[in-house]
């Protein structure tokens, strides 16, 4: 399992790697599901497989903290230009990783909490992909 405290997180564009130096967590959501079904007469004990939500992309969300200005600008440009990015979360001890290729950024990068206290630094960065490993 990937341990957050020893992980490296970020994305790459055209082979150039950019790191998110402070991350509170990474959340992966896979929307595609496989199910079993069978005829209602219930004689089939093995069933058939069908899929749902194949059209819906998977998401990976970084709860990032204090994103550097130059990275923020790259993310803003990437949203505007629909730039494809490869996103990663890698355990730097075991090499275990989550890799999402050809992602897009789903929302314009923006600080959403302007409050007193530490939460003001947190911004969710959500990517969508059909190539998650």
């Amino acid at each position: 399992m990937i341990q957050l405290w020893r992980s490296e997180n970020g994305f790459s564009i055209d082979g150039i790697t950019y790191y998110l130096p402070d991350v509170d967590g990474a959340t992966v959501t896979v929307n595609e599901r496989k199910h079993l079904t069978r005829g209602a007469n219930s004689t089939n004990k093995k069933g058939f497989v069908y899929k749902e939500n194949s059209k819906q992309a998977s998401t990976i969300v970084f709860d990032s903290v204090n994103v550097p200005a130059e990275i923020a600008q790259i993310l803003k440009d990437a949203y505007n230009n629909e730039t494809r990015m490869d996103v990663f979360c890698i355990d730097n001890v075991t090499g275990e990783s989550i890799s999402a290729k050809d992602c897009i950024l789903t929302t314009y990068f923006q600080q959403t909490n302007v409050t007193e206290g530490e939460d003001t630094y947190n911004v969710d960065i959500e990517f969508e992909t059909f190539n998650l490993k």
Binding site: E8, S12, T17, D86, F88, I90, D91, N92, V93, T94, G95, S97, S99, K101
Partner: peptide
């Protein structure tokens, strides 16, 4: 290890 993994990807 991280860089090796990124190159692999």
């Amino acid at each position: 290890i991280t860089q090796a993994k990124l190159l692999e990807d």
